Structures are given as C-alpha cells and as structure tokens.
Computed example of a mutant assay.
Amino acid sequence: MSKTAKKSQTARFQHRMSGRTTVTQGHQHRFRNLTDRLIPGNGTHRHSFNGITQITNGHRHSYSGITGNAINGQGARHFHRFRQVSRIANGHRHILSGRTSVPIRVSGSSKHRHSIIIESIKQK
C-alpha cells in the first residue's frame, strides 16, 4: 500500500447495539444493529443509529435515534446508553433501551458505510 493510500485510510469505529424491546400487547422484539454517524460534542460524542426489529407476531418495528454521551471517557472502554421509542406497527410501539458495546473497528476507511442489518427470522 502506498504512503498516499495509507494516509487516506482512517480507522472507523462503531458500537454494537442489541437487546429486547419492552413487552407491549403481550410480546416483544429482538433488535441488533451498529451505531452509525459520530456526532462530536463538547469533550464527548454521541452516535446516530437506526434499525428494524426482528419479526414477532407477524410484524416488525423500525427505529432511529441518537445515543447518549460517551461514558467512561472516550477511549477503548467507553460506551453509550440509549433509549428510543419504535415507530408504530400493528397499532402499537415498543421502547428499546440499553447500552452499547465498547467500540469495535469495522473498517479501515472513513468512507465505509454500513446498511441496516436484517436477519432471517424463523417463526415458532
């Protein structure tokens, strides 16, 4: 790799988000995604995120939001808390909340983007 190519390559770090929504109308959904854009702040930062829950009871919910500020500094051990209400589907909403993973390296390029992660779901 040339020196010019090395200079244009920047490590991109994101956080994993996963969990279960609140129980509404007798069911809940699993969710899993990566944070997206880094939003700088005064001595801290946040991340935007979006995703779609897994299918339960024949439907799923989309969601998007912004994490809280970095907790535990801004180094390799920091994480973020999040709490977001999903969009309405099948006449109701759910709340997604929790904390992200510590940062994970997802790319060597700052231009690399991830699309929404959607998994194959087996109905019981």
Rank of each mutant, 00 (worst) to 15 (best):
S86I: 01
Q84E: 14
T67D: 02
I95R: 04
G75T: 10
A70C: 08
H78P: 00
A70S: 07
R93G: 00
S97W: 10
R87D: 13
H78L: 06
I71W: 09
H80K: 07
Q74I: 13
S97A: 08
I71D: 11
L96G: 07
R81V: 15
H80Y: 03
A76R: 13
I88F: 00
I88G: 04
L96R: 07
N69H: 14
F79G: 09
F79T: 15
F82L: 10
G91P: 00
L96Q: 08
I71G: 06
A89K: 08
G73R: 05
H80A: 07
F82T: 07
R93Y: 14
Q84P: 01
S86F: 06
A76C: 06
N69C: 13
G91S: 06
R77W: 05
R83D: 09
V85H: 01
I88S: 02
T67E: 05
L96M: 09
N69A: 15
G68H: 10
R77P: 00
I71N: 08
I71Q: 15
N90P: 05
T67L: 09
R81C: 10
V85E: 04
H78T: 03
R81S: 15
H92R: 01
A70P: 01
N72I: 08
V85T: 12
H92Q: 12
H94I: 05
G68L: 07
S86V: 02
T67V: 03
A89E: 11
H78M: 03
G68K: 11
R81Y: 15
T67F: 07
Q84K: 15
R77N: 14
Q84S: 09
R81F: 12
L96F: 00
A89T: 06
R93T: 11
I95V: 08
G75Y: 06
G75D: 08
A89Q: 12
A76T: 14
A70H: 04
R83P: 06
H92E: 11
N72Y: 12
H92A: 10
Q74N: 12
Q74R: 10
N72P: 06
S86E: 02
I88C: 02
S97F: 09
A76N: 10
I71T: 12
G75H: 09
V85A: 07
H92D: 13
G91W: 00
I71K: 14
R77M: 13
A76F: 12
Q84G: 00
G73A: 07
H80F: 09
A89N: 14
I71A: 13
A89G: 13
H94P: 04
A70Q: 02
H92M: 12
H94R: 07
A89Y: 03
Q84F: 05
G91T: 02
Q84H: 11
Q84A: 08
R93V: 10
F79E: 10
S97T: 09
S97N: 04
R87I: 02
R93M: 11
